[in-house]
């Protein structure tokens, strides 16, 4: 089922943005600060009701879905995820079952295994490193077995190795058919790891397509006002700013 934005306007943030996202792919939402990336992601996750337009999943507007039904299908990972209480990793991951109103063990075990958290599952969240915490928070989303994973800058606070590890986990999910949508600031990560890129500029839709096309010299020059070159081979490109 496609996840789509239909002429979404959130006053003061984004205006008339339309985009269609496909399952089984990693889609990066890119744009300079203030472009409205997080707002678009929140609309796609059903967390913000647009002033105009709507988001829909498989042709059904999110606003017509009960929150619990939407939650079963769309897992959302907010920016700067912090736990208010120092719960154990396993209990944190098990929160992902909330939309299903069950305490099923298998999806929680599978999420813990998928993100290599077996050894840490009884540890309080406060005793995890930044990378481990990011994995635990993503595992919470996976435990809900959503068809879509929406993540707001999940790589922002991680070092390069942990960024690559986490994006590797997201790739596995996409390869298994889950739609993955991430807000990304790092254009090199978007270029190398995203299948599709949606570019926003000052709250407006600037384009959608393959990463090579949407992060070309011309687009980056126009949207980010930067004169750049891409160095290296496809899949391991580096950004060079002139």
């Amino acid at each position: 089922m496609n996840l789509s934005a239909k002429n979404i306007t959130v006053t003061g943030r984004i205006a008339d943005v339309s985009a269609t996202l496909e399952p089984g792919k990693i889609t990066a939402i890119c744009g300079p600060n203030g472009a409205g990336k997080s707002t678009l992601l929140s609309c796609l996750g059903g967390l913000i009701t647009p002033d105009n337009g709507y988001a829909e999943l498989g042709g059904v507007p999110l606003s017509d879905m009960a929150p619990i039904e939407r939650a079963k299908q769309i897992g959302f990972l907010p920016q700067n995820g912090e736990a208010a209480w120092d719960v154990a990793v396993r209990n944190l991951v098990a929160l992902g079952r909330m939309p299903h109103r069950d305490a099923a063990r298998e999806p929680v075990d599978a999420a813990i295994t998928a993100l290599d958290l077996e050894a840490l599952q009884d540890r309080p969240i406060s005793q995890l490193s930044g990378g481990e915490k990011a994995r635990a928070l993503l595992a919470r989303v996976l435990a809900g077995q959503p068809e879509w994973i929406l993540a707001d800058e999940p790589l922002a606070a991680l070092d390069l190795a942990h960024q690559l590890a986490l994006i590797g986990h997201l790739r596995k999910q996409a390869d298994a058919g889950t739609g993955v949508v991430i807000v990304l600031h790092d254009l090199a990560l978007a270029m190398n790891h995203a299948d599709r890129v949606v570019v926003l500029d000052k709250g407006s839709f600037a384009g959608q397509g393959a990463a090579e096309k949407m992060l070309s010299h011309a687009v980056i020059s126009e949207v980010w006002k930067l004169d750049i070159d891409w160095l290296g081979e496809s899949g391991s490109k580096a950004l060079s700013i002139r």
Partner: peptide
């Protein structure tokens, strides 16, 4: 109780999990 548990991860995460 379930909604209070969901709030462990903050308002946005809780709403994304179906908390009203």
């Amino acid at each position: 109780r379930r909604d209070l548990d969901a709030l462990i991860l903050g308002d946005a995460a809780a709403r994304s999990m179906g908390m009203r």
